[in-house]
Nucleic acid binder design. Sequence first.
DNA 1: ATGCCCGGAACGTCCGGA
Length: 257
Amino acid sequence: MKIATWNVNSIRARLPNVLKWLEARQPDIVLLQELKTVSETFPHDAIGDLGYNCAVAGQKALNGVAVLSKSPIDIETTCLPGDPDDAQARYIEVFTHGLRVASIYLPNGNPAPGDKFAYKLAWMRRLVDHALSLLALEEAVVLGGDYNVCPTDDDVHDPALWAGDALTRDESRALFRELVWSGYTEAYATLHGTTAGAWTFWDYQGGAWLKDHGVRIDHMLLSPHAADRLVACDIDRTPRAWPKASDHTPLLCELDD
DNA sequence: ATGCCCGGAACGTCCGGA
């Protein structure tokens, strides 16, 4: 089975591209981020017509995450545990196709340091704590999405230019490493060994796509039961070249059924 | 020195993004 993650940067602005890509690739499960709309205006019908069920945690204008699946979906939660006052729609966790799956839109955190960076680190701490609790269940778990973290300098086209950024700072990387060291397998790095040049995001500005000036910030983390089934993990650059592209491109994982 | 590119909200620009 195939599971994908894609920050679409507005599901309504991106709908034609998303539909075209779903038809071409036929993933079984898709994790979406940055919907930038509420559930009421999410295009349930257009995506449903392609055979997908949709679980949506939306928000007006900002954030918003969803899980699409060709199998039935049971929603576990639409909030990351640990802060009842956090109203940002950045996490949805569901059961579908025999997996526990979360779509994650981790805070950007810029400018750093500052309030937004503190929010990012607090959010990551909550994610690590929750991810640890999920490991104890000994289930097949997939935590995928836009992590807004470049795990190493190999994951940035120009590390000097990005030094000090919230995506590359030691504090962000240390919390990402906690997820990996606690027992989650980062699918792309594990299968490919090197991650240099494996960008998933290219800024709209400055011709970054044409110059291939990207960063690798979208990741799929697998619990041991899911990692045992991992057979492939690749970045599909195709839709980044289409008109009206998102600034992110999809990451696709294949798991044994 | 500043903005550069986008989407959303909203209708004039500003915020957020990475």
